[in-house]
Write a protein that binds this DNA or RNA. Structure first.
Lengths: 202, 202
DNA sequence: GTCTATACTGAGATAGAC
DNA sequence: GTCTATCTCAGTATAGAC
């Protein structure tokens, strides 16, 4: 068989479909087609659609942690790691222009649906918030680390939103550049482009 | 009867519900209950759900134009008018924390649904983009007016998103303050708080 | 574990009486 | 213009055979 269990295939296909079409708009038929099983067979693996959502959020949390660990294991400086975060928008620009930021769009959808999983979904944002906060802390911005972290998170989600709305790649690239500029001035670093190394690590 | 026609009532109730629950998640039953008519009676006024969406977008466009006209008719300076735009986030902070930015969330939802009305919905963002661009132009930022307009639009939508995700009022207020600070430094204006007059005009 | 068949629900939409 | 009744379809979920 394949390298992944059927259950894992369902979760990973749902992950993609929830991102591309939204949670509510994705039906079991869509997922069943993607993983090539019958609709009825779902309930052997998951007891409800909500439980698939829970599994998808867990998967995304795990993937986010892995991403952050990868950026750290490159043993870059904190400023370069933040640069990696900013450049993530470029690495994912095609998807972002079509479907927006995966974290933000899931959160806003669940907020409107008043869905019980909203709280755990917001943990996806918290992971990046906490990580960014620590990077700014390491840069010496001890008192305003959270403010800076939230500011950057806010700007990255805003950039993703306008790129998705207008479908203009240039907008995303402009905002990424402005974020790098902001990072350079807000921390008192010597010049030198921090954006070069970070694009490599997708 | 009431001051609004039944058709107008349907549009305005749908406007609110589409914002609060999302377009797809709002059913005719929801709208019917809100305006106190029977489900079957819808089709006298609108031939489909999509046509209600078109009407809602038209209404929002008209309301946006009216809002911008109001800010202009106060005969403030261009900088103060931009301040009004920024402060809009504070005026609407309760709704934004619950339901996000009305413009951004509709756009992202329609993008995921691949809905034909996505293009006209993006006009809602374009209205603000164009208006902001003109304000920056009037401030003397002739070559980078569009860049500055999109930057501010991006930041306002990002601020709305994180406030909605984390449910922390303070985050929204912090970002609003940073936008005012940015505005003051990006245009070479004498000091003096530009946020004071703009909160008045909701 | 995987399938088919089916129950049940709520959605958008239509027909026709009043 | 507004109503009730009804159609059709897609969605989630279940039952039970293999």
């Amino acid at each position: 068989m394949s390298e992944l269990s059927k259950k894992q295939q369902i979760v990973s296909a749902s992950d993609l479909l929830f991102y591309q079409r939204g949670y509510a708009a994705t039906s079991f038929a869509d997922i069943a087609e993607a993983v090539q099983i019958s609709r009825g067979n779902f309930y052997y693996h998951f007891k409800s659609k909500d439980s698939i959502l829970d599994a998808v959020i867990s998967l995304r949390l795990a993937n986010s942690h892995k991403l952050l660990r990868d950026w750290e294991s490159c043993s870059l400086s904190a400023a370069e790691r933040i640069g990696c975060f900013i450049n993530r928008l470029l690495v994912k620009q095609t998807d972002i222009m079509r479907y927006g930021c995966p974290v933000a769009t899931l959160n806003t959808e669940l907020a409107k649906l008043n869905h019980p999983a909203k709280a755990t979904a917001s943990m996806l944002s918290t992971v990046f918030r906490t990580w960014l906060r620590r990077q700014f802390f390491l840069l010496g911005e001890k008192s305003s680390a959270d403010l800076l972290a939230m500011h950057l998170l806010s700007r990255s989600q805003g950039a993703a939103t306008i790129a998705n709305t207008f479908g203009e790649q240039k907008l995303l690239q402009q905002e990424v550049q402005l974020m790098h500029d902001w990072l350079r001035t807000c921390i008192k670093l010597p010049a030198g482009n921090i954006s070069t190394p970070s694009l490599a690590s997708a």
